[in-house]
Simulated assay, not measured.
Amino acid sequence: MCTSISFPAHALFGRTLDLETSFGEQVVVTPRNYAFHFHHRPSVSNHFAMIGMASVVNQVPLYAEAANEKGLYMAGLNFPGNAFYFEQTDPGRENLAPYELIPLVLGTCATLAQARRLLENVHLTAEPFAPGYPAAPLHWHIADATGSLVAEPMDDGLHLYENPADVLTNNPPFPFQLMNLNNYQTLSPNPPENHFAPALDLRTYGQGMGAIGLPGDTSPMSRFVRAAFLRGNAVMDMDDPVRIEQFFHVLGGVSMVRGSVITPEGKNDETRYACCIDGACGVYYYKTYENSRINAVSLFEEDLDGEQPQLFPLVRGPQIHFVNKPRGSDTL
């Protein structure tokens, strides 16, 4: 359960990561000379540097989402019941395990157009990262300053779709999500007009009534509609720091409150973190569930010609700033 959004015109990309438990996530900078190894193709030992959220297993970063130094973004989102990976390789295609897709795309592609050309030849195989690590059922949101697309692995191959909404959630497949938006085209951020019965004296009694009918639940299809509405109407003509805050406000509209979604196993599905990546300057911003302060890691402040990933554990605890001196405290 996740939501990814992009604002290509501002080179801002990010997502919520909704999960019932931690996956060991931390911000990871992978420099240009770290060697990525693959099951069915040669290693890539020199590539574009990247920054994103990942777990690190056996010194290998497993990215949930990342952006490279050229401003290309890619995020994997849960796609259960629909994602399909082949048991056999295809000798005429680029054979990749799902976890290898982000490293290869972001490591070798500078633009969305280049990523599309690579993905058009990809054949995803069912190899897990290691024993005990099943291949996660995923689809991907890829974007840069020129636009965004969706890649969905189905039983007849990897489908690529232009993404005019600049939004991705989970199920159903992307074409159904996009078609469903037709059901909400009468919604508006403006006050409503009385088309119901013009002869009746019907009046607005509060702000926001133009969007009555916007889904409020956290199901994937409803989050897609709500994210598309918020992203499509969000005012972004402000300076960068405020624009970053605005990006997080959009993500806040599709975030999961602890206790509001219970999994079949009885666990809380919640927004463990939300992130915004500024593709123009290489800064990764994030919030965690427990810490709503925006924290940031800059890609270009690190040694990008190194050979080992740089790891930045998440700041998780609450950070409350008192503007006056609380009672019983010697310091502010």
Rank of each mutant, 00 (worst) to 15 (best):
P98H: 06
P98R: 03
P98V: 11
P98E: 08
P98C: 07
Y99R: 04
Y99M: 11
Y99H: 15
Y99S: 10
Y99V: 08
E100H: 06
L101A: 01
L101P: 00
I102S: 01
I102N: 01
P103A: 03
P103T: 02
P103K: 01
L104S: 00
L106V: 07
L106T: 01
L106I: 09
G107V: 07
G107W: 01
T108E: 12
T108Q: 15
T108A: 09
T108H: 03
T108D: 05
C109I: 09
C109A: 15
C109L: 06
C109G: 10
A110M: 07
A110T: 11
T111L: 13
T111H: 10
T111Y: 13
T111Q: 10
L112K: 09
L112S: 13
L112M: 12
L112Y: 09
A113C: 14
A113S: 14
A113M: 10
A113G: 15
Q114H: 08
Q114Y: 08
Q114G: 13
Q114A: 15
Q114S: 13
A115M: 02
A115G: 05
A115V: 06
A115Q: 02
R117Q: 15
R117G: 05
L119T: 01
L119R: 00
L119H: 00
L119S: 01
E120C: 09
N121W: 00
V122D: 02
V122L: 05
V122I: 12
V122C: 04
V122P: 01
H123R: 04
H123K: 06
H123F: 08
H123W: 11
H123I: 07
L124C: 03
L124S: 02
L124Q: 01
L124G: 03
T125K: 05
T125P: 01
T125E: 06
A126V: 02
A126E: 03
E127Q: 12
F129I: 11
A130H: 08
A130N: 09
P131G: 10
P131R: 08
P131I: 08
P131E: 14
P131V: 09
G132W: 14
G132I: 14
G132L: 15
G132C: 14
G132M: 14
Y133R: 13
Y133A: 13
P134T: 11
P134F: 12
A135V: 14
A135W: 05
A135F: 08
A136N: 04
A136L: 14
A136M: 13
P137G: 05
P137Y: 04
L138M: 07
L138Y: 04
H139A: 04
W140A: 07
W140C: 08
W140Q: 06
W140N: 02
W140M: 05
H141K: 07
I142S: 00
A143I: 09
A143F: 04
D144A: 08
D144Q: 09
D144V: 07
A145R: 10
A145L: 10
A145V: 11
T146I: 09
T146E: 15
G147H: 09
G147D: 08
S148A: 15
L149K: 03
L149E: 02
L149I: 15
L149C: 10
V150Q: 02
V150Y: 02
A151D: 05
A151T: 01
A151V: 05
E152W: 05
E152I: 05
P153K: 05
P153L: 12
P153M: 11
M154W: 15
M154E: 15
M154Q: 14
M154C: 15
D155A: 14
D156I: 13
D156Q: 12
G157F: 06
G157P: 07
G157C: 13
